[in-house]
Computed example of a mutant assay.
Amino acid sequence: MQVHLSDDDEWLQRERQRIGRRIRVTREDRDLTQEQVFLAVPMNRSHYQQIESGEANPTLDMLLRIARVIGVTISDLLR
């Protein structure tokens, strides 16, 4: 099976959006605001918003920090 670059780019975008939604839903389930999370991580507001919307490509370290702040494991965010 040959994967085309544009197919790969679309897949990556969908996966980033899926992870971002999982972060947002989990954060909201724990009654945390975006501000509480991005200040605790720490990171700037716009970058955090881009992660939740799937526009940013967060590092593993950033995902680990976000998971810790919202009280889940990174595997919870990636499943």
Rank of each mutant, 00 (worst) to 15 (best):
Met1Val: 11
Val3Tyr: 06
Leu5Glu: 15
Asp7Phe: 01
Asp8Thr: 06
Asp9Thr: 02
Gln13Pro: 01
Arg16Asn: 02
Gln17Gly: 10
Arg18Glu: 01
Arg21Gly: 07
Arg21Trp: 10
Arg22Val: 06
Thr26Tyr: 00
Thr26Ala: 02
Glu28His: 04
Asp29Tyr: 00
Asp29Arg: 12
Leu32Asn: 11
Thr33His: 04
Gln34Ser: 09
Glu35Gly: 01
Val37Leu: 08
Leu39Val: 01
Val41Leu: 05
Met43Asn: 11
Met43Ser: 04
Met43Thr: 11
Met43Tyr: 03
Asn44Gly: 01
Arg45Ile: 00
Arg45Ser: 03
Tyr48Trp: 07
Tyr48Gln: 03
Gln49Asn: 13
Gln50Glu: 08
Ile51Asn: 04
Glu52Gln: 08
Gly54Asp: 07
Glu55Ser: 04
Pro58Asp: 04
Pro58Asn: 02
Thr59Val: 14
Leu60Ile: 09
Leu63Tyr: 09
Leu63Pro: 00
Leu63Gln: 04
Leu64Thr: 08
Arg65Gln: 09
Ile66Phe: 12
Ile66Trp: 13
Arg68Pro: 06
Ile70Tyr: 05
Ile70Trp: 03
Ile70Lys: 14
Gly71Ser: 07
Val72Cys: 13
Thr73Leu: 04
Thr73His: 02
Ser75Arg: 11
Ser75Leu: 12
Leu78Lys: 12
Arg79Thr: 08
Arg79Pro: 02
